[in-house]
Design a protein around this nucleic acid. Sequence first.
DNA 1: TCAAAAGTGTTTTACCTACACCCATGA
DNA 2: TCATGGGTGTAGGTAAAACACTTTTGA
Lengths: 231, 231
Amino acid sequence: METFLPKFDSVFSIDCVIFGLDEGELKILLIERNEEPFKNWWALPGYIVEQDESIDNAAERILYELTGLRGIYMDQFYTFGDVNRHPQGRVITVAYYAMLRLSGNKELKPVSNYASKAVWISVKDIPKLAFDHEKIFIRGFEKIRNKISYQPIAFELLPEKFTLTQLQNLYEVILNKKLDKRNFRKKMLNYGILKELNEKQKGVSYRAAKLYKFDKRKYAKLFQKELTFGK
Amino acid sequence: METFLPKFDSVFSIDCVIFGLDEGELKILLIERNEEPFKNWWALPGYIVEQDESIDNAAERILYELTGLRGIYMDQFYTFGDVNRHPQGRVITVAYYAMLRLSGNKELKPVSNYASKAVWISVKDIPKLAFDHEKIFIRGFEKIRNKISYQPIAFELLPEKFTLTQLQNLYEVILNKKLDKRNFRKKMLNYGILKELNEKQKGVSYRAAKLYKFDKRKYAKLFQKELTFGK
DNA sequence: TCAAAAGTGTTTTACCTACACCCATGA
DNA sequence: TCATGGGTGTAGGTAAAACACTTTTGA
C-alpha cells in the first residue's frame, strides 16, 4: 500500500558524515529513518534547515536530534543539488563531516522521532542508503582521505592516549594502503606534535608499547606556520 | 523613498567568482545590479536557482544570463548559509568559481535585465559589493591560491601560447609573492607538461621569449598519477 | 621458549632553496 | 650602445623512500 506523500517546494537540508574509530575499525554514524520517504531505510543523519538558523547551527542541531550527540563541530564539504535527489520535492543538501573520539560518548539515542535508531557502522560494511546518501558518504570519505594526507587530523579519532602503531593503523585504514613503520614513526615524531608519556600499554600479551598524547599547542603552531608559509 | 520589498521563503542561489587575466592583471567578473535589493550596486554574478535545474546547470545558466558568457565550466567551493545574508528572505547560496582565458571572449553583455552591465575588475580594486559578496570573493580567491599551490591550474587563465615569464607573473599575482626565476622555470619544465614551441614572442622591444603550450594529455596523466599515488 | 608486536638507522634519491651573470633584441 | 627582459647552473640542505633485524613481554 502506497503512502500519500505531500509535495513541497524548495528546502535546504543538512546531511552529516560522522567518522569514528572503534577497535581499529573506521565507522560512520547511520540512522534508521522513521519517516517517509525511505521509512526504515538506513541513511546519513540529516534533516531540514529551519528558516531562522544558519546552516552551521542547523548541522549541529540536526545531528543532536537524530543521534543525541551534542556540540559536535563539523565542516561542510560539498553541496548536492541534483533535481531529483529527493522524491517529494526540491531539496538541496549541504553535507558536513566530522571525526569523533568514540571512547566514552558511544551512547547514541535519537532525540527526535525522525530516526528510530542511530548506530556506528563500519565503512567497509555500509548498507544500501536512502536518497543519494551513498554518493555523499563516498565524497565525505574522499574528503578525509585527502585531508589526512596533508594535515595530521587523525588524532581527532584516537583516544587521548594512543600508541604509534594505533596511529599508523588508522592512517592505513583511511589511506587504504600499508605504510613503512620506520618511516611513519620518524615522520610523525619529527612533526613534534606528539608528547611521549611515561606510560605503557596494559593488558597486552606482548611487549607493551609507549603511549603518546597529541600536543594541541604545538599542532596549532605548526599548522599556523604551514598556512602562512604557503608553498 | 523606500521601495517595497516582498518577503519570500527559502530559495537557493548561485554566486560566481570568475577569474580572468588581463594584461598580467588578475581580474574578476562583476555585474552592476539592476534589481532591488542593492540596485545599482556591484555584485558577483548570481541569481536564484530554478526548481527544475541542478545547481551545476543553474550556475552555467545564471552566468550566461548575467554576463553573456556561455558554457563556462565552474566548480563549487563553498555554501554560504547565514540567516540574514539576504534582506528579503532566507537565501542560501552556493558559490562557484572558474578561471577563464580572456583572449577573444571579452565581450560581456548581460542577457537578462537583472544586471545593467558586466565588467572585469582587478582583484586589487574591488569596490564595495552587495550582500556578503566580499566574503564570497575572498574565499574564492583563497580557493584558487590554495589550489594553484598543488595543481598547475594557472594555464586556464593564460592564452594558448605563453612565455615562462607570463606564467611566473601569474603565479606571483595569485600567490602574492616573488618567486625565483631559475627555480620556477626548473620546476615548471620538470613537470613535463609544457610543450616548447618553435615560436617566439613578437612585438616586444627586447629579446623575444620562447612560447610554450600547455600539454593537456601529459597533465592529465600526471594528475591521475598524483591522485592515485596519494601521499 | 615461543609468539607477537615494539622499536630502531642508514643509504639513496628527489626536490627545494639560494644565488649572479651573460645574451639577444629593438629602439 | 643601451635598456630591457630572456635565459642559464651549481651547491647545500631537507625530506621521503627503501629496507631487516633485535628487543621485550606475557602466555
